[in-house]
Design a protein around this nucleic acid. Structure first.
Length: 294
DNA sequence: CACTTGACCTGTCCGC
DNA sequence: TGCGGACAGGTCAAGT
């Protein structure tokens, strides 16, 4: 659920709210959510000041004055919600989708010296937060293997095509979901960008003309950019740091629109399974490329 | 090595 | 209304 646009929206909110705040305490329920040793937490987290908030792929990094960083992955249902000191006692903000915090899905709470708090909620407990030396982040396995940022200026169509061809014998959907090919695309934006490019998600990479792959490169960038403008997609769980929804889902052409008319040709959108994921497709607008046969 | 499937979890929804 | 099962999907480990 949180894909690149959702994680970037959270990053923008955290970058606005967190720098210069000093951590007073951390509370967490399970070691799985926050596996660091208590001695490291005391030494490198408590009393540290937040410097900046960065993102790489779907991973957030909160850099601390201790030269450690909180590295965070929201996975499917993770949420980071900030509440200022004034939000407590008098109740929570009325326009938040999230009620009183902490609640039953709160895994980690960071409390700052000024009384404000950052809550890490995660219904399904797949997400995590880890304290690592800032300088070591580029060395962790995921950072070593993850592909280029699709919204960076040097992510050209040529680079995209070269990287996608590493997965030439699999479906195009599986290929763009592969974080080692490019960073940040998940199920929503895979379906939306493939619709925009007119490619059936089950098409094998090797069968798709280069010109179509070039179109897909353009559409991936367009879809991700529009979604960041809309504050991401709130399908089920996703909210921003204020607990508010993103509106991109209102602009989605196929995602979660099965049995509704295609906005272009009016034929019904169907839902199938591709690469083990629920996949939304308009079989009229999206061509299934298959081999050399006609 | 390339690729696919299952596991990790919990809440929701659907059919009986 | 209760209950079992399918489903949701990011990533990694295990399997083919």
């Amino acid at each position: 659920m949180p894909e690149l646009p959702e994680v970037e929206t959270v990053r923008l909110g955290l970058q606005r709210l967190l720098p210069k705040r000093r951590i007073q305490a951390v509370d967490f329920d399970t070691p799985k959510s926050f596996p660091n040793a208590p001695s490291d937490v005391r030494e490198f987290l408590v009393s540290a000041t937040i410097m900046q908030v960065r993102r790489r792929a779907k991973v957030l990094m909160i850099d601390l004055s201790s030269e450690y960083s909180l590295v965070i992955h929201l996975k499917m249902t993770g949420q980071l919600v900030f509440r200022g000191a004034e939000s407590f006692g008098a109740g929570h903000p009325n326009d938040s989708l999230i009620g009183e915090l902490p609640d039953k899905s709160t895994r980690i709470t960071l409390t700052f010296k000024d009384g404000s708090k950052l809550f890490f909620n995660d219904q399904r407990k797949f997400g995590w937060m880890r304290l690592l030396p800032t300088i070591e982040i580029p060395n962790i396995d995921f950072m070593q293997r993850v592909g280029p940022e699709p919204l960076s200026a040097d992510f050209t169509a040529e680079i995209f095509i070269n990287r996608i061809m590493r997965r030439k014998n699999t479906s195009i959907k599986a290929a763009i979901l592969d974080q080692t090919v490019l960073a940040g695309v998940g199920n929503i934006y895979a379906d939306e960008s493939l619709f925009a490019a007119g490619i059936h998600p089950a098409s094998l990479v090797r069968d798709i003309p280069k010109s179509k792959l070039k179109t897909l490169h353009t559409e991936i960038i367009a879809v991700l950019t529009l979604s960041i403008e809309k504050g991401g997609s709130t399908d089920r769980n996703y909210v921003n740091v204020e607990g508010k929804r993103g509106s991109y889902i209102d602009f989605a052409k196929v995602f979660r629109r099965e049995s509704l008319p295609c906005p272009v040709c009016k034929h019904d959108i169907i839902k199938i399974k591709v690469a083990g994921r629920g996949t939304h497709v308009c079989t009229t607008c999206q061509k299934l490329y298959k081999g050399k046969s006609a």
